[in-house]
Structure formats: C-alpha cells, structure tokens
C-alpha cells in the first residue's frame, strides 16, 4: 500500500510537471496555473512523506538501540572516577604571564558597575531634586496666566454698556477687565 501511494505520488508529480511545461509552452496560462498548484501540492506532499519516513527510520534505530543490553557497572565506574575538587578551574590559568578574561568575570564586573551607577543616580537625584523643583516653580509662576481674564466676557460687556456704564459699583463688581485696565 505504501509503495502504491509513493508510486501514485511520483506519477502525479511527473505528470503535473510535464503538463505544466506543456501548458506554458502553449501559452495557456490558466491551465498552467492550475496544474502548477497541483504540482506544488504534490511536491510538498512527497517531501513531507520523505521527511516522515526518515524520522520513522531514526525512531526505529533509537528504539532498537534502547532495547540492546548495556554493560553493567556504570554507577560503580562513576564512583570510582577521581573527583574534581577544585572549583572554577578556568580561573586558574596554567600560564600566569597570560591575561585571561572569563565570562564570569565580565558578568560580575557588569553587575558591580551597574550597582555603582544606580547608587550615583540615586544620590544625584535626591540632592538635585529640591533645587530643580524650586527653579521650575519660579519659572512657571513667571509665565502663568493672570487670575482675571485678559478680555471682558460677553456678559461683562453687556453689563457695562451704555445705561450702566457710569455705575461705579458695577465697575467694582465687574473687576479690572471691564474697566480696560490690565491686572
């Protein structure tokens, strides 16, 4: 059955490839597109089948190897092996005249430098914050809008028009904007 499937796939691939060529040769683009899609689909299917077959073969090999008898005594050999007691042996260069840079050293150095930078940033921020805030507040006060409006509102203009224009009490109520004076 497998062989039949492979045979059908290969025949379909060859046939669709041949017809793709023929249709292009005849300037029949629509037919060529349709057959081209079929050709690609067959090609992808066959390639997938090849990969799956290879994976199955690898799996079979692994299973066959796992089932094979193993020599005993692995634990004893491990325990009998000499124990490496020196930690971080790469930090002890054989030649003391050579300069070695190791990744742990770089990592540790980076950690230390980051800590120092964080400390400096905290100290600088706490010492400069008060002065900076005061300076910003002063500058903001200088450019702040006046408490009263720069131009009279429509209601103020209506109230100050003609009939009540000379009423000093109304002037007091309307404020400096109605009198045309700047605050």
């Amino acid at each position: 059955m497998k062989k039949l499937s492979w045979l059908v796939g290969v025949v379909a691939l060859l046939g669709s490839g041949a017809y793709l060529f023929v249709y292009i040769y005849r300037w029949e683009w629509h037919r060529a597109l349709l057959v081209g899609v079929l050709f690609l689909a067959t090609l992808v299917g066959l390639c997938t089948g090849l990969v799956v077959r290879r994976l199955n073969a690898v799996g079979d090999t692994v299973r066959a190897t796992a089932a094979a008898p193993r020599p005993p005594g692995a634990l004893d050999r491990l325990r009998a092996a000499p124990v490496e007691s020196k930690p971080f042996p790469w930090l002890r260069p054989a030649d003391p005249d050579r300069t070695h840079i190791f990744i742990p050293v770089l990592l540790g150095g980076g950690f230390v430098v980051s800590g120092i930078a964080w400390l400096i940033e905290r100290v600088a921020g706490s010492s400069a914050r008060e002065g900076v805030e005061q300076e910003v507040a002063t500058e903001l006060e200088e450019i702040a809008f006046p408490a009263t409006s720069l131009v009279p509102t429509e209601a103020e203009l209506l109230a100050g028009d003609e009939e009540f224009g000379d009423d000093p009490a109304l002037r007091v109520l309307l404020g400096p904007a109605a009198t045309g004076t700047s605050p």
Binding site: R26, W27, H30
Partner: peptide, 12 residues
C-alpha cells in the same frame, strides 16, 4: 498568433 491560439484554447 501563438499567444492568441493559447488564449483561445485556455480555460478563460
């Protein structure tokens, strides 16, 4: 002529 023949025979 080839192009016209192909177009006419195609599944347009």
């Amino acid at each position: 002529r080839r192009e016209l023949r192909g177009c006419l025979r195609d599944t347009r």
